[in-house]
Amino acid sequence: MDFTTALQILDSTVRLSTPLLLACLAGLFSERSGIFDIGLEGKMLMAAFISAAFAFTTGSVWLGMLAAIVASMALSALHGLASITFRGNQLISGVAINFLAAGLTVLIAQNWFGLGGRTPSLETGARFESLTLPLADSLAGVPVLGPIYAELISGHTLPVYFAFACVPATWWVLYRTRFGLRLRAVGENPAAVDTAGVSVIGMRYAAVAICGLLCGIAGAYLATALQAGFIKDMTAGRGYIALAALIFAKWRPWYALVSCLLFGFLQAVALRYQNIELGPITLPGQFMDALPYILTVVILAGFVGRAIPPRAGGEPYVKER
């Protein structure tokens, strides 16, 4: 493998990691507050469709993004209503959202555009363009570092940079602000937060809203930046891979970056090579697709340190009698 190929795979890794990272951080906010969210997939899918539909209709990628965020947050509100206010089962609510999104997106797309469940291709202006960072062109000639800067770091769309900036931002919010302290506490012991005079319900809704916001951006990125338009089931399990990455990351922001890059890399490799020749063994591309899940099982089995989820995760908060 030469330098150019390696660079291309890494470049593709960055692009493929972005939706995983956004969804993973979305899940991090929600799960740190004690609300398990298996509906990342559904929210991303809905956001992807809505962003493509609105971007196509209005011609503005930003209106598409805005609509996607609104749609994703609406689904989040639904999840919050079911699991926080009505203390329902969080897994069931999440699964319901996934089914709802899978069905609704195709149904509405067919009704609006009549293209068999997809949106028309998006033109320039209706999708995010690559940004060229300052000096990228002039530095491209510098050996090794030049191409890395020009290809790998420069030349991505705005949401990519946003997603990577979200990592330190999330860390800062979580560990350096009052909101973060309360968020972490409410996922560990909501009774402690309640008796300290802070609203458990308010904290959890705030977390779920942030989750919806980030999922909305992730979905819009898929349809208006990574690709140009919405196709049926275009999230292709990314919501689940993001959940796997979250466990892999032990619910921590910097670890989330590492695990999302790793899983994005596996996707990039699988995308480029159908089969991988390793001496006498040939690994099928599907193996790469399955690897994130296999790695997660390894982590959960406790081989590589322990992944301890937030202690109050999945449990609706009820004041004790």
Partner: peptide
């Protein structure tokens, strides 16, 4: 006890009685 088990003593004391949005001064 209503304590967050994996927080420090200081964090537990401050929780809900922070002075501002940033944690360090509190």
């Amino acid at each position: 006890f209503k304590l967050v088990e994996n927080f420090t003593v200081l964090e537990n004391v401050v929780l809900g009685a922070e002075d501002g949005r940033l944690l360090r001064p509190s």
